[in-house]
Amino acid sequence: MASVPMHQGLLLAGILFSLGLVGLLVRRNVIFMLMSLEIMLNAAGLAFVVAGARWGQADGQIVFLFILTMAAAEVSVGLALVLQIYRRFKTLDSDAVSEMRG
């Protein structure tokens, strides 16, 4: 059967990653920046799974599992930081936290 060609999947991963990057650069709300990070990590995992499916190996899916673990750890720490920022600065604007210089 004609399965999905690899470059189409990689193209989708690239588009999703670029969208996440644009969201990370454009938004100034910390919650939206974390969500954009999730989009980018998800797109990177998609690229690994597509490449693993191309060669018929399970390694791509293993790396996606590790990315999933890392995303879960990152988002829990990140959201705890968001709570702290909101408690101290009473805002979610990331520019307000720019007083920490060096």
């Binding site: 399965s3 974390l34 799974v49 996606f64 599992l65 995303a71 879960a72 988002v75």
Partner: peptide
Amino acid sequence: VFFVIGAPFMAALEVIIYAGAIMVLF
């Protein structure tokens, strides 16, 4: 997409962990 390209386990994990757990945290 994962399901179609032949990774059903990753499709299940995507739904359970990403769309389930991480989004609930958000």
